[in-house]
Write a protein that binds this DNA or RNA. Sequence first.
DNA 1: CGCTATAGGTAGGCAGCCAACCTATGGATC
DNA 2: GATCCATAGGTTGGCTGCCTACCTATAGCG
Lengths: 112, 112
Amino acid sequence: MKSDALRGHLDALLLATLDGGRRHGYAIIEALHQRSGGALDLPTGTVYPALRRLETAGLVTSEWSTVGGRQRRTYRLTRAGQRALAAERTAWREFTTVIDGVLGGGPWPAGT
Amino acid sequence: MKSDALRGHLDALLLATLDGGRRHGYAIIEALHQRSGGALDLPTGTVYPALRRLETAGLVTSEWSTVGGRQRRTYRLTRAGQRALAAERTAWREFTTVIDGVLGGGPWPAGT
DNA sequence: CGCTATAGGTAGGCAGCCAACCTATGGATC
DNA sequence: GATCCATAGGTTGGCTGCCTACCTATAGCG
């Protein structure tokens, strides 16, 4: 998959992985990998800065915990994050509708 | 609509407008505007450079013509462009399938 | 003469994502 | 006890693509 195709949709994906349960960054990457059937394999240099952006924006909060001697930063959605996720889902539906309308219709009559 | 959402999909839209007929740049912008129900309103600073990119890539060719004293550059798909359009449509379908699979499923079980 | 619609274009900048790199622990392998 | 991999976190710099802002030009209308 072309990598820039993801542009502007990454936040939605990250928020979605946190819907229904907290997760730490590494687990988010793995969850996306599994959920996408291997199509998504986001590098840490993409995910970690994005999570910090989301936290700065108040959409997620994080807590440090130590599991088996390893540091984990676990993220969960805030209320604003849940609202943002709902908005992202709506925006995604509208986006696909628009693009489908352009791409999907086959050849256009020349006069349209 | 968030503008970066379009990232990586613009070429597909432009190629699609040229499927089934030649068009000049201004008409491409208007066609996209109409086809999208007003959702797409691409600025010339986005479209014209993109068309030149597509031409450089061999996906479209252009011809100058003069209509009513005005210069028009009319674009049409090359064979490579038609193949590229088909590939873009396939990529789009795969892309939406992947994102839908992540966004669409509602809350995830924590263990997944 | 000025304004709008039509038609083309360029230049500079911003932001998002990625590649490359770094640190650290625990367990398995050698 | 050394080495390696999986797990877990992170930063930095750069590329690229799109957009904002700006410019030129013609035809037609007021």
